[in-house]
Amino acid sequence: MIGILLTIVSSFFFLGIIAFTKSITQGRKGPGVFQPLKDITRLFKKGSVYSSTTSYIFKIAPSIYFCSVLCALLLVPFQSQKALISFDGDFIMFAYLLALGKFFMILSALDTGSPFEGMGANRESLYSMLVEPAFFILMGSFAMYTGKTSFQDIFYNFIDFQNPTTAFLIIIAAYILIMIAMIENSRLPVDDPKTHLELTMVHEVMILDNSGFDLGIIMFTSSLKFGMYGLLICNLFTDSTMNLLTQISIFILVQVIFAVLIGLIESFRARERMKKNPVFIFTLTVLSMMVFFGVLLMMNKM
C-alpha cells in the first residue's frame, strides 16, 4: 500500500523534475517542479473537442489506459511491504494489463481517421511488440534465480550485493528496465516528445485529437507509468532487511536519479532514426538473454 501511495505521489513530481533538469542544462531558469501537475489540473477543468469521425472507443480509451496502469500498479510490491494483490505469475498479468491499455490507445488513434495518428499507432504497436520478450525473459531469469514466480516473492528473495556477478547482473537488469520504461513512455532515444514535426513523433502524435479531461488523464498515466517503473527499479536495489525509512529514502533517491537521468539524456542526445529503432529495441531482448545466461552460470548449471 505504501508503495502505491509513494508511486502516486512521486508521479506528481516526476515530469517536473525532468523538465527542471532540462532547463538547468540549457541554462534556463525553467518552470517549477509542479508545473506539469498544474498543466494536468488545468486540463481537467477544460471542456473537450471531439472529432466527428470518432466512435465510443475514442472516448473510453484514455480511461481504460489509466485504469490498466493503475491495476498493474496493484501487483507491484515495495520490497518488504506486500503488494496489494500477489499471486504466482502476476508479472504476466502486469504485462498483459499494460498491453490492454496500449491496445485501446492504438485503437483510439486509428479511430480519428487521421493519417498522422495512424502512423503513430503503427509505430507504437511495433515497438511494444518488440519490447515484450525483453521484459518476459528478464522476469523469467529472476524467477529462475529465486525459484519464485510472483513479483513479491522474487524481490523478497532477491538481493545479494556482496557477489560482484550479481551486482553486475542487477545493473544490466536496471538498464533494461529503464529502457523499457523509456520505450513504454515514448521518450528518447526511441521517441522525442518535444519534437515539432508530427511525422517524427510516436506517442505524442497518437493523442493529437485528445483534449480536456482525456488529455489530462493520458498525461497523468504517463507519469504514473514512470513512477511504476521507478518502483520496480527501486525494488532491485533495496533489501528486505532494511528498515522502512531506509527503503523509502532509497525509493526517493531512485526516482530522482531516474528523472534526472531522463532529463540529461534528453538534453544531450538526439533521437535514433526511426529505421534504427527496431534494432535498438531488439537489443534489449538480447541483453535480457545475457542476464538469463548469467543466471545460469551463477547457478552452476552451465
Partner: peptide, 27 residues
C-alpha cells in the same frame, strides 16, 4: 518458448488492432 510466445502475443496485438482499426474505425 518464452521468447516465442511473448513475441507472438505482441504480434497478435499488431494484427488485431490493425484489423479492427482498419475495418471499424475511421472513415
Amino acid at each position: 518458448s518464452l521468447f516465442g510466445i511473448s513475441i507472438i502475443g505482441g504480434m497478435s496485438i499488431i494484427n488485431f488492432t490493425r484489423m479492427f482499426g482498419m475495418t471499424f474505425l475511421g472513415k
